[in-house]
Amino acid sequence: MSLDGREALYDGSNSDGHFLRRPMSPHLDVYRFRLSMALSILNRISGVASAVGFGLAVTWLGSLAAGSKEYGRAQRVVNNPLGKLALAGWGVATVYHFVAGIRHLIWDDGHRFEKHQINEDGRITVAVTGGLSGVLLGAVFVLSRCRRKARVQG
C-alpha cells in the first residue's frame, strides 16, 4: 500500500472483512471527445465569464452615475477594439449560459436524458447560441453606430 493520500482512497474492504483495491474511476482522458463534454464545461466557463462581465457592467453603471467625465472614460474603454471584443465575448458567454441554463432546468425536471436527445439538443444549443448572439451583437453594434452617427450630424 502506498502512503499517497489518493492511493489510500482505493483501499477498501468487502463485507467479509477482506481487503481489496477499489477500481479506479475513469478520468476525462480515457474518453473519446463528445460535444456534450465541451458544452458541459463551457456552461461553467461561460458562467464565470458572464460573472466577470457583469462586474464590469456594474462598474460601467457606476461611471454613468458618477459624471460625464467618468462616463467618457468608461465609454473609451468600451469603444476600444479590445473593449468591443470583451463586450462581444461577454455577450456570447451570457447567451450560451442562458441557453444551457434552460437545458439544465429541463434536465432538473427529469427530461432529455437519453443519449440521442443529449446529442440532438447539444447541436441545437450550438446553433441557437451562434444565431442568437450573432443577431444580438450585430444589432447592438449597428444600432449604436447609426445612432452615434446621427447624433454627430444632428
Partner: peptide, 22 residues
C-alpha cells in the same frame, strides 16, 4: 436562474433601445 430569465430578456430589449444614445 428562473427569475433572471425574463429579466435578461427585458435587459436585452433595453440594451437595443439604448445602444448608441448619449
Amino acid at each position: 436562474a428562473v427569475l433572471l430569465g425574463p429579466l435578461s430578456l427585458w435587459a436585452v430589449v433595453q440594451i437595443l433601445r439604448l445602444a448608441g444614445h448619449d
